[in-house]
Amino acid sequence: MPPSKLPPTIRQRRLGSELRRLRELAEISATEAGRLHGTTQSRISNIESGGYPVSADRVRTLARLYGCSDQPLVDALTEMTGGRTRGWWDEYRGILPEPNLDLAELEHHARRIRIATAIHMPGLLQTTEHARALFRDVVPAIDPPTIEHQVSFRIKRQAVVYGERPTPMTAIVHEAALRMGFGGRKVARVQLEHLVEMSEQEHITLLVIPFGAGSYPSSGSGIVYFEAEIPKLDTVQLDTDIHSGFIDARPQLFRYRAVFDRLEGIALAAKASRDLIQHAAQTL
């Protein structure tokens, strides 16, 4: 696909939606915004959909026209400009679904990642064989080449926690995830040993919610919280067996920050969590 025809990235779409949010708060129509900016309504609409590259200067100009006095927000938005930057994930465009690529891009740009899972290991902490076992169980079944594409994509995503400047991450898993045994005993044991090893990294906090903790908020789905330059630009991913979607509405961001704070309060401390994981591995 030629670069000019590539669809906007999730980062470009978010920049556009934030500019639209500022315009709507100012109660200015797209037509009026175009007139004030010396352009057309269609150009404003294309910018807001992420389909038209926007410069840092243009962002500042639009923010000024919309009366935005939130300088940290304006500064953060200007950091999101610069046109479409290709990432390693673009190698998989047309091979894997677009949400997969969006996820990799969010991970790449996140300042901190918070993850909560009920019965699955966080993708960023999965071993190759564990990931392969999960994709083999997908319904409807996917063919072997697609399984291998999915596995290689998942492992490449883990560069954000393995690289020279790893992204800080807090992962909260329920004890059920430690006991599922995906891929059989050998695969499961290696996966648990890998969790223990990763939990010893300074930039990774791994916490376990024990069975004895009882019910807890948002237990029915996996949640990933991507922290951006400022909280207003954070993003949440909700992941279930039938749907994976992204949320950036301010009230929902506030809600999920509170959910993660609650989960961290329910979970065992880091050392106790590591001990429980080691015990689970030893008893397989």
Rank of each mutant, 00 (worst) to 15 (best):
Q158A: 01
Q158Y: 00
Q158L: 02
A159V: 13
A159C: 10
V161H: 05
V161I: 15
V161G: 00
Y162S: 10
Y162H: 14
G163R: 03
G163M: 02
R165W: 08
P166R: 00
T167R: 04
T167L: 07
P168I: 04
M169S: 01
M169D: 02
T170F: 00
T170D: 03
A171W: 02
A171Q: 06
I172C: 13
V173E: 01
V173N: 03
V173H: 05
H174V: 06
E175K: 00
L178Y: 04
L178W: 04
L178C: 03
L178I: 10
R179T: 06
R179W: 07
R179Y: 02
R179C: 02
R179A: 11
G181D: 02
G181N: 03
F182T: 03
F182Q: 08
G183N: 01
G184M: 01
G184T: 01
R185Q: 10
R185T: 12
K186N: 12
K186C: 04
K186V: 09
V187S: 01
V187R: 01
R189H: 07
R189A: 07
R189Y: 02
V190T: 14
V190F: 08
Q191M: 05
L192S: 05
E193S: 10
E193M: 12
E193F: 07
H194P: 11
H194M: 07
V196S: 09
V196K: 13
E197I: 12
E197R: 15
M198C: 11
M198F: 10
M198Q: 14
S199D: 09
E200N: 10
E200P: 04
Q201I: 00
Q201N: 08
E202K: 09
E202M: 11
E202C: 05
E202W: 10
H203C: 00
I204A: 03
I204V: 06
I204D: 01
T205W: 05
L206A: 03
L206V: 04
L207W: 11
L207T: 03
L207S: 06
L207K: 12
V208W: 04
P210G: 11
A213K: 08
A213C: 06
G214L: 05
G214F: 12
